[in-house]
Write a protein that binds this DNA or RNA. Structure first.
Length: 802
RNA sequence: GCUCGUAUGGCGAAAUUGGUAGACGCGAUAGACUCAAAAUCUAUUUUUCUUGCGAAAGUCUCGGUUCAAGUCCGAGUACGAGCACCA
C-alpha cells in the first residue's frame, strides 16, 4: 500500500468507528479544544490553517488517549463580503458559492486526518444557526441593550456603497480610489461600552496569554480622571474631562470638539457663526482621512462671544474649536494646559495663545515642546495658590477633593471602547429581525417567527443611496406590524460578520438543538472552552465581541459562566519561502493538496509543527519538509528491527521515560517543534540498536500518533497491536528518567577546560578526585593554588585558582 | 508618538529554576554502496589560529551583578506587530 492508500484507510476507519464523535454527559472528564472556524474562501485551505489545526489536533488526540471526553469541533464562518461579491459577479446566490467552498475545505480537512467531530458541523449561514443569532439579537433588544443611532459611515460616492474601515483605508475607496466621505446613517448599536468594566474584570477569570490580556486591556482603554463643570460668562455651563487635574491652574483656554453636541448648543450665542460653521463642515470632510496627515497641524478657530470662567481662579478664559478633540470621547471638551500637554502646546503655538507653567522643571513655554517627565521624583507645583509646593501626586488628590466638595467635579472613568455598530448595508448577513411600523415605531419580530430567512434571489445589486440590497426586494421588505397588524417594513440592514462568530463555540456544545441555542445542561457538562486557538489578528476584536456576547447571555441567565473561554493561545503565520505573506500576486502560495499528494498528510502535519516557534511567523521551506519525510521513512524502516520481545529494552528505558515526559509536556506548552525533535532523537537512537522490542516500537508510534496519525496506526497494526486511537497514552516514571551516569563540564576560572563522567549520586570528594586527575586540568592547576572548588551536583564543576 | 514583542551558525531553530551555547532539522563538504542515478549509511560543518593535541573569540551594542550570564539589572540600537490627536 502506498502512503495515500494508508491515509485513506485510516480516515475511513475513524469515520466508520465514529472514533471522534463525542456525547454530552459522558462519564469521562470533558475537554474542549477549539480552533477558530474558518471563512471558507474560494482559494481553499491555506497551509497556515494546517499549522494550527494540526497543533490543536495533537492536543485533542493526546487528551483523548489520556482518558478525556474531547470535543474538537469544526464549522464555517461563511457570511461576508467575498461570497457576496463573487455571487453578484456570477449571478448566483451566495449560499451556492458558500456550499461549494465548504465542500472543498471539508474535503481538504478530511485528507489531513483532523479528528473533528463532524456530527456537530454547522455554518453561520445555516438558517438553523442564524435563527439563534437573530434570537439573541432580540434578547439584546428586549433587555435594552440594542438601540438605533445616527452615526457616520464611510461612503464612496463613485461606487455608491458603504465601506468598512478596512475597505476605506487611507481615506480612499479600495476599489476605485475615490476619496471617501462621511455619510450619516441610522444604525443598530449594541451597548458594549456599558460592559467596559466587566470586560476588564472578567480577564481575571481567564487563562489568556499575557499578550492577549494586554490586547484586551488596550482596546478597552480605561483612564481614570476628573470631570469638571465649567461656567460660561453670562450663564450656562459645560463639562470637561481630564486625567491631569493637578495642572488646572495652567489653563489658558478651552477646546471643544467640532463634531460634538456642545457646539450645537452654544451656536445661538456664537458671534462668528460663519467661521465656526465652516470649520465644522471642514471637519466632516476630513474626519475620515488618514489621521497621520492631520497630525501635522492643529487647526481650529476661536468661538467668539462666549467666554468660560476658570473653576478656581474665576478668570475669564477663551474657548476654541479644534478637531483634535473628539466629540465621542469624554465630554467632547478639554481644558488646555499648553505648558504641560503636547497637543495643547501645539494648538497654542498655532493660534498664538498664552501659556502658564504650573509644574516646576523644564520650562517649555518659550521653546519647542519636549516630552517632560514631570511625574518624576521632586516634581512640584508652582503658580498654583495654596497647592504650590505639593508634589504632583498630592496635588492630584487635594485639588480633586476641593472641587468634588464644591460640587463642581466628579471622579469618573473613561473608556476608549465604544458601543458596537451592528448594522451592515449588505445582502449576505443575518437579517436583523426588526420591523418598522409608522404607528408603533421599531417592533421586534415574534420569536416564534424566526428564522427570518434571506430572500432566495440570485439577482441583486447594491442600491444607489447606500441602502442594503435587501431594500430593493420589496416582496421581502413589505410585511405587517406584529403589534398593530398594519403594513410595515422590515429592517434591511444585516448583521456584521462578527455576530455569528461571537457565540459559535456555545453552539458546538449542543449543535443541533432545535429548541434552544444550546441547553444549559450541555453547557454545564462541557463547562467552558478549555483551549482556544486563533490568529493574532483576532485576539483583540473577535475575542472582545465574543466575551461581551457571553457576558450578556450570562447576565440574563442563559450561560453558566461569565467567561466561557479559559485559555486563549495564538499562532504565527506561515509565510512564503521568500519571507513574505503568501499571495497569488507574489507567486509564493503553497497549496496543501499538492504537498499531500506528493509527500502525504503525515509529513505535512509533522513539518508544520516542526518548522519553528508556534507563536512566531515562519517561512515555508520545501527542503525542510523533505527532512520530515525522511523522518517518517526512518520510522517505517525501524519496523525491520522489531523483535518479538516483551517490555522496553533495558538500556533504552531512561531515554524512553524522558521522551514520554517531554512529548507530553511540550504538546501542552506550545512547544510542538521540540516534541518532534524529541521523537527524532528517539528514532535515531532506535536506529543505532541492533534490535528493538515491540514495546519500544509501539511507544514511539504512540507518542508520534497525535502528529502523524495515519502511518503510526498502520505500523502499529502491522506489529499486531490494537489501534492506537482506542488505547491509552503512556505514562512515565520520574525515577527512570534519571540517568545513572552523566558527563559534566569542568571549568577553571569560569572557562571550560574539560569534562568528566560521574555517577549521578557521586559525592563531591570523589568528583574532585576525578577532576584533578584529568590531564588537561592538571596542566592548569600546576603551581597554582585552588581558592575554591564549586560543584553543582550533576551540572558543572568550576575551580577557582590563583 | 504610545503599547507590546523579537534579536543566537549559511538557513529554520534549541537551551524548565543563571550551570558544557548551537539540541533537532535543512543546506554544504568528503566518503561507502551502485555501471550510474535516486534512496540509504558514515564523517565533518559557529568563526579564527594549529598537521594534531589544543587555544582565542563568540548569543544586536555598551556597561553592571555573579565562581558562572543567551538567561538577571541599567542604558541604547535595529526590526516586527497593534493602537494611534483618547484629554
Amino acid at each position: 500500500m502506498n502512503i495515500l492508500e494508508i491515509e485513506k484507510k485510516w480516515q475511513n476507519y475513524w469515520d466508520e468507528h465514529h472514533t471522534f464523535e463525542v456525547k454530552n454527559n459522558d462519564s469521562k472528564p470533558p475537554f474542549y479544544v477549539l480552533v477558530e472556524f474558518p471563512y471558507p474562501s474560494g482559494s481553499g485551505l491555506h497551509v497556515g490553517h494546517v499549522r494550527s489545526y494540526t497543533a490543536q489536533d495533537a492536543i485533542a488526540r493526546m487528551k483523548r488517549l489520556q482518558g478525556y471526553n474531547v470535543l474538537y469541533p469544526m464549522g464555517w464562518d461563511a457570511f461576508g463580503a467575498p461570497a457576496e461579491t463573487y455571487a453578484i459577479k456570477n449571478h448566483i446566490h451566495p449560499k451556492q458559492a458558500v456550499k461549494e467552498n465548504i465542500k472543498t475545505f471539508k474535503g481538504q480537512m478530511k485528507n489531513l486526518g483532523f479528528s473533528f467531530d463532524w456530527t456537530r458541523e454547522f455554518s453561520t449561514t445555516d438558517p438553523e444557526y442564524y435563527k439563534w443569532t437573530q434570537w439573541q439579537f432580540l434578547q439584546f433588544y428586549k433587555h435594552n441593550m440594542a438601540y438605533k443611532a445616527t452615526v457616520p459611515v464611510n461612503w464612496c460616492p463613485n461606487c455608491k456603497t458603504v465601506l468598512s474601515n478596512e475597505d476605506a483605508a487611507g481615506g480612499v475607496c479600495e476599489r476605485c480610489g475615490t476619496t471617501v466621505v462621511q455619510k450619516e446613517k441610522s444604525q443598530w448599536m449594541l451597548k458594549m461600552a456599558s460592559y467596559a468594566e466587566d470586560l476588564l474584570k472578567g480577564l481575571d477569570d481567564t487563562n489568556f496569554a499575557k499578550k492577549v490580556k494586554l490586547g484586551q486591556i488596550n482596546w478597552i482603554g480605561k483612564s481614570v480622571g476628573v470631570e469638571v463643570d465649567i461656567d460660561i460668562v453670562g450663564g450656562g455651563k459645560f463639562s470637561i474631562f481630564t486625567t491631569c487635574i493637578e495642572t488646572i491652574y495652567g489653563i489658558t483656554f478651552f477646546v471643544i470638539a467640532p463634531d460634538g453636541k456642545l457646539i450645537q448648543e452654544l451656536m445661538p450665542r456664537v458671534e462668528n457663526k460663519e467661521e465656526v460653521l465652516n470649520y465644522i463642515e471642514e471637519t466632516k470632510k476630513k474626519s475620515n482621512m488618514d489621521r497621520t496627515e492631520l497630525n501635522k497641524g492643529k487647526t481650529g478657530c476661536e468661538i467668539k462671544g462666549i467666554k468660560a470662567i476658570h473653576p478656581i481662579t474665576k478668570e475669564e478664559v477663551p474657548i476654541f474649536l479644534g478637531d483634535f478633540v473628539l466629540g465621542e470621547y469624554g465630554t467632547g471638551a478639554v481644558m488646555a494646559v499648553p505648558s504641560h500637554d503636547q497637543r495643547d502646546f501645539e494648538y497654542a503655538v498655532a493660534h498664538n495663545l498664552k501659556m502658564k507653567q504650573v509644574i516646576d522643571g523644564k520650562d517649555t513655554t518659550n521653546e519647542a515642546y519636549e516630552k517632560q517627565d514631570y511625574l518624576g521624583i521632586g516634581a512640584k507645583l508652582i503658580n498654583s495658590a495654596e497647592f504650590t509646593g505639593l508634589t504632583v501626586e498630592e496635588a492630584k488628590k487635594q485639588i480633586t477633593e476641593k472641587l468634588v466638595n464644591e460640587g463642581i467635579a466628579r471622579v469618573v472613568n473613561n473608556y476608549k471602547m465604544r458601543d458596537w455598530i451592528f448594522s451592515r448595508q449588505r445582502f449576505w448577513g443575518e437579517p436583523i429581525p426588526m420591523i418598522y411600523c409608522e404607528d408603533c415605531g421599531w417592533v421586534p419580530m415574534d420569536e416564534k417567527d424566526l428564522p427570518l430567512l434571506l430572500p432566495d434571489v440570485a439577482e441583486y445589486e447594491p442600491t444607489d443611496d447606500g441602502e442594503s440590497p435587501l431594500a430593493k426586494i420589496t416582496d421581502w421588505v413589505n410585511t405587517t406590524c406584529p403589534k398593530c397588524g398594519k403594513p410595515a417594513k422590515r429592517e434591511t440592514d444585516t448583521m456584521p460578520n462578527w455576530a455569528g462568530s461571537s457565540w459559535y463555540f456555545l453552539r458546538f456544545m449542543d449543535a443541533h438543538n432545535p429548541n434552544e441555542f444550546a441547553s444549559m445542561d450541555s453547557m454545564k457538562y462541557w463547562n467552558r472552552v478549555d483551549w482556544y486557538n486563533g490568529g493574532m489578528e483576532h485576539t483583540a476584536r473577535h475575542l472582545l465581541y465574543a466575551r461581551f456576547w457571553v457576558q450578556f447571555l450570562y447576565n440574563i441567565g442563559l450561560v453558566p459562566h461569565k467567561e466561557m473561554i479559559w485559555t486563549r493561545v495564538s499562532h504565527g503565520m506561515v509565510l512564503g519561502s521568500n519571507n513574505e505573506k503568501m499571495s497569488k500576486s507574489k507567486g509564493n502560495v503553497i497549496n496543501p493538496d499538492d504537498i499531500i499528494s506528493e509527500y502525504g498528510a503525515d509529513t505535512l502535519r509533522v513539518y508544520e509543527v516542526f518548522m519553528g516557534d508556534y507563536q512566531a511567523d515562519v517561512p515555508w521551506s520545501t527542503e525542510s519538509l523533505k527532512g520530515c519525510k525522511r523522518f517518517i521513512d526512518k520510522v517505517i524502516r525501524l519496523k525491520d528491527k522489531v523483535v518479538d520481545k516483551e517490555g522496553y529494552t533495558k538500556s533504552l528505558e531512561p531515554l524512553i521515560h524522558k521522551s514520554i515526559k517531554k512529548v507530553t509536556n511540550d504538546t501542552l506548552n506550545l512547544s510542538y517543534n521540540t516534541a518532534i525533535s524529541t521523537l527524532m532523537i528517539l528514532a535515531n537512537t532506535y536506529q543505532d540498536e541492533k534490535e528493538i522490542t515491540k514495546e519500544d516500537y509501539h511507544l514511539l508510534l504512540t507518542l508520534l500518533n497525535p502528529y502523524a496519525p495515519h502511518i503510526t496506526e498502520e505500523l502499529n497494526e502491522q506489529i499486531g497491536y490494537s489501534p492506537i486511537c482506542e488505547s491509552t497514552w503512556p505514562t512515565y516514571d520520574e525515577e527512570k528518567t534519571i540517568d545513572n551516569e552523566v558527563t559534566i563540564g569542568v571549568q577553571i576560572n569560569g572557562k571550560l577546560r574539560g569534562e568528566v563522567k560521574i555517577n549521578t549520586d557521586e559525592k563531591e570528594d570523589s568528583v574532585k578526585q576525578k577532576v584533578i586527575n584529568i590531564e588537561n586540568i592538571q596542566k592548569y592547576l600546576d603551581g597554582k593554588e585552588i581558592v575554591k572548588f564549586i560543584y553543582i551536583p550533576n551540572k558543572i564543576v568550576n575551580i577557582i585558582i590563583k
